[in-house]
């Protein structure tokens, strides 16, 4: 369970996202970046690669075709690029990788929970950067990737989802950063 103020921020950005996106059958992505005493809400973009990933995950192992699962997501990376998120091309991957920011998901993530009230089901991803790692004054982009073990930028082929932070997150050397990222599945 998150801190009360983080939960409040998540609820606010979720409500905003759902009001913007609530149409027939949508998966809505949103989250918060928590650094120091600041909480920065964001919406995400699921890339073309992300569409394919979720499509493949949806039927992995189902007989008789029994398709294989895709390469699984492993964590997040940060960057300082500000290119608008896009389905493919430059906006579908980190623009400027922040060295040392490759992070696997936190120990109990991903995890799912019902939203309730016929409002779908949420998968939550979370990653944390401790004090002294990924120190940067202008963290402006974050991605969910399948190559979080690699301390280098990720291509669009490795990127499920990307978000641009505005305002940017300022992470001092003594501060930790946590990103909590929800994908809410609501079919129709």
């Amino acid at each position: 369970m998150f801190r009360a103020d983080v939960q409040d921020a998540l609820r606010r950005v979720e409500a905003e996202a759902m009001s913007l996106h609530r149409g027939p059958g949508s998966i809505v992505g949103y989250g918060v970046a928590v650094v120091g005493d600041e909480i920065i809400p964001f919406h995400n973009l699921v890339t073309t690669v992300g569409d394919a990933y979720y499509g493949a995950m949806a039927i992995a192992g189902v007989s008789p075709a029994t398709p294989s699962a895709p390469t699984l997501m492993t964590g997040m990376k940060l960057g300082t690029g500000v290119t608008a998120a896009a389905k493919s091309g430059a906006g579908a991957a980190l623009g400027t990788y922040l060295s040392g920011s490759n992070a696997t998901f936190d120990s109990t993530y991903p995890q799912g929970a019902a939203v309730g009230g016929d409002s779908g089901y949420t998968v939550t991803y979370s990653a944390t950067w401790a004090a002294g790692t990924a120190t940067e004054d202008a963290i402006s982009e974050v991605v969910i990737v399948n190559d979080a073990a690699t301390d280098a930028t990720s291509t669009a082929a490795n990127t499920l989802s990307r978000a641009v932070l505005d305002p940017v997150a300022n992470k001092g050397a003594t501060q930790a950063l946590t990103i909590i990222w929800n994908h809410t599945f609501l079919g129709s």
């Binding site: 809505v28 909480i39 995400n44 641009v164």
Partner: peptide, 16 residues
């Protein structure tokens, strides 16, 4: 809570 006045619009949903 630093509210982003320029959060992306409807285009960042994923329809199923």
């Amino acid at each position: 809570v630093r509210v982003n006045e320029k959060l992306p619009g409807p285009k960042d949903s994923l329809r199923v």
